[in-house]
């Protein structure tokens, strides 16, 4: 064992700080589930009686179901297209040495830093000038655009640990490029692809700004929630719905990140 300098020694104040930080991250979000079981129209302490009636109300809410289905359809389509584009991109930049790789990757990653409202209004203007009516398809287009950078980042992390000699071995053994990809590359990168699909689905499912500008009469779930926020008497229902969405998102993202990280750690010499 290495002799412990102050670098390695555990640091109690820092640890406390880390715990407080995690509390800061999570406690605000936990207020939604807490109040979703509170038998009161108002979101105030002290808590009243325990109730599940807001959830019952939510389950009986038809417009909410429609919005949920819209969000699922948009999310699935966005995840699929973004991940396909992400696979091409990540494979290319990790497999081949290319001049100008950095600016190209930068271009693809740009939607990460462009304020959402700029992308939203720019696409809105484009659609209206091209005469394309707003629909769930336009929302999907916007979501693919913002999901591709996340998909690329997830997949690059996964592809970078990939030994290209394996693919070359498959090629030497007579597989063509497509078969080599399908039989060698794909099984190895599959966790990464799954992680990307899950992540993109969650991003699209929770995305608000693009959907706000690019949807028409069919709302996605966040747009539906936004519409409900104006009515105080609808607040508990929104809180119940929000709690469910939060819990599901947390689980899906945790699985996605875990798949991605675990995948990388399993490749020898990668990760810690």
């Amino acid at each position: 064992m290495k002799s412990a300098t102050y670098v390695e020694r555990s640091n109690r104040p820092l640890r406390t700080y880390a715990m407080l930080f995690l509390a800061f991250l999570y406690v605000p979000v936990l207020f939604l589930p807490l109040f979703s079981f509170n038998d009161s129209l108002y979101v105030t302490f002290p808590l009243k009686a325990f109730t599940t009636k807001w959830y019952a109300q939510m389950l009986a809410n038809e417009p909410m179901h429609a919005a949920l289905m819209n969000s699922i359809r948009v999310g699935a389509a966005s995840a699929l297209f973004a991940t396909i584009l992400g696979v091409f991109g990540a494979k290319a930049v990790t497999r081949y040495r290319m001049p100008g790789r950095k600016p190209v990757v930068f271009t693809i990653m740009l939607p990460l830093v462009i304020p959402g409202i700029i992308m939203g209004v720019a696409l809105l203007i484009l659609m209206s000038r091209l005469g394309i009516p707003l629909s769930l398809y336009t929302v999907t287009l916007g979501h693919v655009l913002i999901c591709v950078p996340f998909s690329m980042a997830t997949l690059i992390a996964r592809f970078e640990g990939f030994d290209k000699s394996m693919e070359e071995a498959a090629a030497d053994l007579g597989d063509n490029a497509w078969w080599a990809f399908w039989r060698v590359t794909f099984p190895i990168v599959f966790p990464g692809i799954l992680a990307s699909l899950l992540l993109c689905f969650t991003i699209s499912f929770d995305e608000f700004i693009m959907a706000f500008f690019l949807s028409s009469t069919e709302p996605t779930l966040p747009i539906y929630i936004w519409g409900q926020l104006r009515f105080p008497q609808k607040l508990p229902g929104v809180i119940a719905l929000g709690s469910v969405i939060l819990v599901v998102s947390f689980v899906v993202v945790f699985v996605s990140q875990w798949l991605r990280g675990r995948g990388v750690a399993q490749i020898p010499g990668e990760g810690r």
């Binding site: 991250l25 979000v29 993202v253």
Partner: peptide, 21 residues
């Protein structure tokens, strides 16, 4: 790392909304 970044992936709208609450 996952714990630190997890809330980021969940609905922005809902997180802002919980602050309003």
């Amino acid at each position: 790392i996952i714990l630190m970044t997890l809330p980021f992936w969940t609905s922005y709208l809902l997180r802002v909304f919980s602050w309003k609450v």
